[in-house]
Design a protein around this nucleic acid. Structure first.
Length: 273
DNA sequence: ATAGGCCTGACG
DNA sequence: CGTCAGGCCTAT
C-alpha cells in the first residue's frame, strides 16, 4: 500500500483540494469496502457535510466533517483517492465516488480491494481495530530514540517489528528495507539486540528516509499516484528495495533478497550487520 | 514464526 | 502456467 510518505503526500494534496468543500452525495459501488455502518448510513453521514480538515494516522487518512463524524480511509495495497471533475475519464476499479460542488468529485479506485473506508464518530476508532491500536507517529517530536527502544523491546526480528503498526505507525515493506539499509542493520537481527548507537542510527534513519520520501512525493513502483493522478519519484532513490542482484550503491556488494514474515526483504550483506 | 486468505493484474 | 506485488487478518 501506500505507506506513510504516500499517505502524507495525499493528505497534503487533499488539504488543499477538498477542505471547505461540501459533500453533495456519494455512490458506493462495492459495499464490501465500506466497513461497519453499511453503505446507507455511510452515505447519509457524509451527505451535506463540509470537509474541515484532513489528518493522517499511520497509513490511515481521516477527513474531519462539520457534522460530528469523521470519514476514515485506508488504501490497502493498491488504493488511490483522486480529486477530479465530472465527466473526466474514470480509472478502472472505481468503487466509490463522492460528489462535491459540481463538477468536482473524489474517486476511490482500488484494483485489489484490500482497502477499507468508514464514517465514525469523531475520535472514536473502536470500530477500526488497526487505527485504534496504532503505535507512535515516527515524525512527531515526541518520537525519541528512547520511545523507539521501547517499541522494539521484543526478541522478534527487527524488520517485521518495524512494520508492526502497533509498535510504530506507518512503516511498510519498502520503507522498512530502505530504513534498515540506511541504518546499516541486518533485517534478521532480534529487535531488542540493538546497541544504543544502533538505536540512535535507526531512529535518525527512520525520520530521514520518511522525510526524504515525502519530499519526493512518495514511491510509485506500481499503482500509487497522488490526488491528481501523478506518481511520486522516491522509487528512483531506493537503495535496496526490489534491487536484488544489483550492486549495493554504497559498497558494490550484490543486493540479496529473502522472505521475512511473508514479505520480500532486500539488503546488502556487507553494509548491514 | 509461518502459512494462507482476501483480490486483480503484470510479467516470465 | 507460476511468481510477484506499498496490507493486514486469521489460524496453526
Amino acid at each position: 500500500m501506500p505507506e506513510l510518505p504516500e499517505v502524507e503526500t495525499l493528505r497534503r494534496d487533499l488539504s488543499v483540494l477538498v477542505v471547505g468543500e461540501r459533500i453533495r452525495r456519494c455512490e458506493v459501488r462495492l459495499p464490501r469496502l465500506v466497513s461497519c455502518p453499511g453503505c446507507d448510513a455511510f452515505c447519509s453521514r457524509l451527505r451535506g457535510s463540509v470537509i474541515q480538515g484532513v489528518r493522517r494516522r499511520g497509513k490511515y487518512l481521516i477527513l474531519t466533517l462539520d457534522n460530528g463524524w469523521e470519514w476514515v480511509v485506508h488504501l490497502g495495497m493498491t488504493g488511490s483517492l483522486l480529486v477530479a471533475e465530472e465527466g473526466s475519464p474514470e480509472p478502472p476499479h472505481t468503487h466509490l465516488v463522492v460528489h462535491l460542488s459540481p463538477p468536482r468529485l473524489i474517486r476511490y479506485a482500488d484494483p485489489r480491494t484490500f482497502g477499507e473506508t468508514a464514517v465514525v464518530p469523531a475520535g472514536d476508532y473502536s470500530a477500526l481495530k488497526g487505527l485504534a491500536q496504532m503505535g507512535p507517529e515516527p515524525l512527531e517530536r515526541s518520537f525519541t530514540p528512547r520511545k523507539l527502544a521501547r517499541a522494539l523491546d521484543t526478541p522478534t526480528r527487527i524488520k517485521p517489528a518495524l512494520m508492526d503498526q502497533r509498535r510504530i505507525a506507518g512503516i511498510g515493506n519498502i520503507y522498512a528495507d530502505e530504513i534498515l539499509f540506511r541504518a546499516g542493520i541486518e533485517p534478521l537481527r532480534p529487535a531488542n539486540s540493538l546497541s544504543e548507537e544502533e538505536l540512535r542510527r535507526l531512529h535518525s534513519s527512520i525520520r530521514d528516509v520518511l522525510r526524504e520520501a515525502i519530499s519526493k512525493r512518495g514511491s510509485s513502483t506500481s499503482d500509487y499516484v497522488d490526488a491528481s493522478g501523478r506518481p511520486g519519484s522516491f522509487q528512483d532513490h531506493h537503495k535496496v528495495y526490489r534491487r536484488e542482484g544489483m550492486p549495493c550503491p554504497s559498497c558494490g556488494e550484490t543486493i540479496r533478497r529473502t522472505v521475512l514474515g511473508g514479505r520480500s526483504t532486500h539488503w546488502c550483506p556487507r553494509c548491514q550487520r
